[in-house]
């Protein structure tokens, strides 16, 4: 059974009097342990696709399954629990909580789940060690570089041992060298832990690192 399955999924936005079709009849299947890049120009529907897969938005029509469960049938609280347990997020602008240290940011998903502090701390330290930020655990985000912040975000995304990590343009705010390092790190983690990674990008230089490429344009998958 695929981890993610989309069947004729559409997403339409109404902006004032006009209607925008962000996704148009998308069929997609992603298995466990895959390392997938979704690429296309700005406005092609990459972010919309990732938002739907990540259960932070609902399709206008069609079916979307996560690990066999249809997401649209879940309540808001059930979706929140699903995201906390099974999906990690990495954002373009890192989205770390500015008043928390690197360690505290990584512990956050575990606090949300209600994991005891000591256990959460141990898991967070392990992940920060994995992304080579052991010396920076007490630093707040404003004291970290862009690359370091994104590594903290990666650690945070993985701390709950999710089946899926979604990264929406994770390297857009980084220089090329750092961007390449981040993508390499994500790929290494994908190989070691068999966690499925889906990330969006419009940077072609990163596409060599991926095993599977989904080309999206005008809300439709045009090529895989």
């Amino acid at each position: 059974m695929p981890l993610i399955e989309l069947k004729q999924v559409t997403k339409t936005y109404h902006i004032g009097e006009s209607t925008v079709s962000a996704l148009r009849g998308v069929d997609l299947s992603i298995g466990s342990g895959e390392f997938v890049a979704v690429w296309g120009p700005s406005g092609s529907g990459k972010t919309t696709l990732l938002n739907l897969i990540g259960a932070i938005d609902d399709p206008t029509s069609g079916q979307l399954f996560f690990d066999g469960k249809e997401i649209i049938t879940l309540s808001d609280n059930q979706k929140a629990e699903l995201r906390n347990a099974s999906i990690g997020f990495i954002f373009q602008q890192f989205n770390l909580v500015p008043v928390l240290t690197a360690l505290e940011n990584v512990m956050l998903p575990l606090h949300i789940r209600g994991i005891p502090v000591n256990n959460a701390r141990e898991s967070a330290l392990f992940r920060l060690n994995q992304v080579e930020l052991k010396e920076f655990i007490r630093h707040r985000p404003d004291k970290l570089s862009g690359g370091q912040q994104q590594r903290v975000a990666i650690a945070r995304a993985l701390v709950t041992n999710p089946s899926l990590v979604i990264a929406d343009e994770p390297t857009a705010n980084l220089d090329t060298k750092t961007a390449m390092k981040i993508v390499s790190l994500m790929r290494d983690l994908n190989q070691k832990e068999n966690t499925t990674f889906i990330f969006s990008t419009h940077d072609q230089r990163l596409l060599d690192k991926v095993y599977r490429l989904i080309h999206i344009e005008d809300g439709m998958i045009v090529e895989e």
Binding site: E81, L82, R83, A85, F89, F91, V97, L108, P109, R113
Partner: peptide
């Protein structure tokens, strides 16, 4: 972000 991480 917190909602995406699973906060209700």
């Amino acid at each position: 972000t917190l909602r995406a991480l699973g906060l209700k």
